[in-house]
Structure formats: structure tokens, C-alpha cells
């Protein structure tokens, strides 16, 4: 292949890498779990400046939704096992979201919330459309004992 084609392809690749670099710098969030956030907060680590992508399991009876103001709050814990054990002792985080309550927000649902941890200890979901996501349909698998 002639050098002019190699140079041309090189220019395209460098441009794409440069755009990617800028886009990553401006649009990335750190994936964390409830236990990580609670532990780091106890250690005095300031997480409030970073955009976080929090994954956790919804505590059904903590859900508070006001349709008039579209204000939604609920607790998340680290895993489903935490809901079965002793919920009082389990580390949990309060999530605050402004918007329509998703249909799939139910007890034990797996929530993925993108937002920031506030000084009041609550986790505020961002304004973007995907700032509160709940894992959908095909996730449900039976955990009961099976035999064949």
C-alpha cells in the first residue's frame, strides 16, 4: 500500500482517538456499589465531586413517590442477600430522583443510578434520561433447587 494511504488512514485513526479521549474525559462515571460508598464515606473519602454510577438492590418498603412533584426516594442495599438478612444492620444508601417512577422499581429490583453523593449522605440521580435504570425482563432467573 502506498504511503499516502497509510498516512490517510493514520490521520483518521488519530482523529478518532483524540475525539475518544476528549469524550471519555467529559463523560465518564465511576461504577460503585453501595458497600463501597458507605465504606469510603466512613473513611472520610470525599466522593461528592465525582460522577458515580451506583448499582444496588432496591428496598421495596423504602420507596416514597409523590406523583404531584414527581419526587422519588428509595433505599438501595448491596445485594439481594442483604434484604433477607438483618436489614437494620445492612449498609444502605438513600437515592433521590426527580422524575416519573419507573414501572420496574419494585422490591429487589436491580437499580443502576448515575449521579452524585451529596453532603447530606443521600445519592442524587442526575437529570439525564438514563440516570435511573432498572434491570429489565430477562434478568429473572429462578434460584430454587433444580434437578434432572
Amino acid at each position: 500500500m502506498k504511503p499516502k494511504f497509510i498516512i490517510g488512514i493514520g490521520i483518521v485513526i488519530v482523529a478518532v482517538i483524540a475525539v475518544m479521549g476528549f469524550a471519555v474525559a467529559g463523560n465518564s462515571s465511576m461504577e460503585v456499589q453501595v458497600n463501597d460508598v458507605v465504606a469510603q464515606r466512613l473513611q472520610g473519602v470525599d466522593l461528592s465531586q465525582r460522577v458515580l454510577k451506583l448499582t444496588g438492590v432496591v428496598v421495596g418498603d423504602s420507596i416514597v413517590y409523590e406523583p404531584s412533584s414527581l419526587h422519588l426516594e428509595f433505599d438501595v442495599v448491596n445485594s439481594r442477600e442483604d434484604l433477607v438478612g438483618s436489614p437494620a444492620k445492612t449498609p444502605r444508601l438513600r437515592v433521590v430522583y426527580q422524575g416519573v417512577r419507573p414501572d420496574t422499581l419494585v422490591n429487589e429490583a436491580h437499580a443502576i443510578v448515575t449521579g452524585k453523593l451529596s453532603a447530606d449522605g443521600k445519592f442524587y440521580a442526575g437529570q439525564a434520561q438514563d440516570s435511573l435504570m432498572l434491570q429489565c425482563p430477562t434478568k429473572y432467573q429462578s434460584a430454587q433447587t433444580a434437578s434432572r
Binding site: 462515571s29 439525564a128 438514563d130
Partner: peptide, 9 residues
Amino acid sequence: VKITVGPPF
């Protein structure tokens, strides 16, 4: 550390 990029990326 898991770093995620969103739709704007």
C-alpha cells in the same frame, strides 16, 4: 475501578 461512559460519549 470500573469507569463507565454514557450516551454523550
